[in-house]
Design a protein around this nucleic acid. Structure first.
Lengths: 198, 198
DNA sequence: TTGCAAAAACTAATGTCATTAGTTATTATA
DNA sequence: TATAATAACTAATGACATTAGTTTTTGCAA
């Protein structure tokens, strides 16, 4: 009386997220997952394509959630306010789901159609949030990369305990965003000065 | 006639770096390393405390090299120039040694005395590079964190192929640094305006 | 309602890896 | 020259992932 226990992909992913967030992404193994789900590890192959398949699904799952909280963060906002809330949502997610966040960066298959779609949507979202700065064409895309670099860098270093100094992390983050935004405003000024010269 | 082949720590680290940089940090196993060195994997325990010990040593080795290239980059420079060269040296190192760079962030033991020393020296170096901005006390430390976030974030995302758009990465990086530096200048202006009010 | 095919769980087996214990040969030193 | 430390080795164990093949349940068609 063992087949059809009721295992399914959502259940598996939820258990995997729990392990990732509490013990780290490396601790998400088919063995640990099977034990948590009270199942033998080969059974997982009915739902997921091995460990690498699981990690890919975990990455997509995380990207979906991250995009969702970022989307919620910017609705009805624009300019500095929008970017600040976006940033806050990003680091809050990374703090709440360290393992899942890790998966979004280390586990995804770049070929995966779903991953590409989510990446594209995220870029679009950030572009819209940056509209107030009137960056033209490529400049907007470069700014998206910059903002993403800064958000990921901060989150990643915070997660790994890379910041050793006894200094308030929230203050560091706020100042970092402020500095970046001030820089964006300057870029906007300079661009205007160039287009209306002497 | 097998003992005393001539294996030593530098040789081991060099081989490990080669594997890490070409195949990725995850591929650095005692097995792969032993094969490369033409030795049985238990022999490595005479020089290194297992896989975790190897990774710790790799992290220290990488941090030393990274600090070295950053130090070279800022000598005789100050202000924007110093920060720009520092940033360039950082991403150049990460590009040239992706696996070793990865090790500096994922492998280090935060308790390790050597790691703490190198981290401290790095902070000092960056503080000096930022001296021209006249940031007072904590502000300077927050700025160090910000710069580091941005450098690591960019390097990490670039390495993982996280930037999908067909857009010149060097331009993105230069703009990111420019934006941050412009922001720092603004912070300096505001601080002055505050100290000499109305 | 009955029977059959697909799906989901299982057991058993293989191979890779890290790690430990115990052995042997070499080197350095007393 | 003898001995102790060291560096390599072999053998064995245990954790994993993965595959092959088996059994049981379930859904659907006759």
């Amino acid at each position: 009386m063992s087949p059809r226990i009721g295992l399914d992909l959502p259940t598996i992913l939820q258990a995997a997220v729990e392990i990732a967030d509490t013990r780290g992404l490396e601790e998400v193994t088919l063995a640990s997952l099977a034990q948590k789900l009270d199942v033998r590890s080969p059974s997982l192959y009915n739902h997921v394509n091995g460990l690498s398949g699981l990690r890919s699904k975990l990455a997509v799952y995380g990207l979906e959630q991250l995009l969702h909280v970022m989307t919620q963060a910017v609705v009805g906002r624009s300019g500095d306010d929008a970017v600040r809330e976006l940033g806050k949502a990003y680091v809050t997610f990374a703090r709440a789901h360290p393992g899942l966040y890790d998966a979004t960066l280390r586990a995804p298959d770049p070929q995966d159609e779903e991953v590409r779609r989510l990446a594209g949507e995220t870029v679009d979202l950030v572009i819209r949030a940056l509209q107030a700065y009137e960056l033209k064409d490529d400049a907007a895309l470069h700014a998206v990369r910059g903002l993403r670099s800064l958000l990921h860098g901060f989150s990643s270093l915070e997660q790994r305990g890379g910041f050793g100094l006894p200094l308030d992390l929230d203050v560091s983050f706020r100042l970092l965003l402020d500095t970046f935004l001030a820089g964006l405003h300057e870029m906007k000024r300079w661009a205007k000065a160039e287009s209306k010269p002497t």
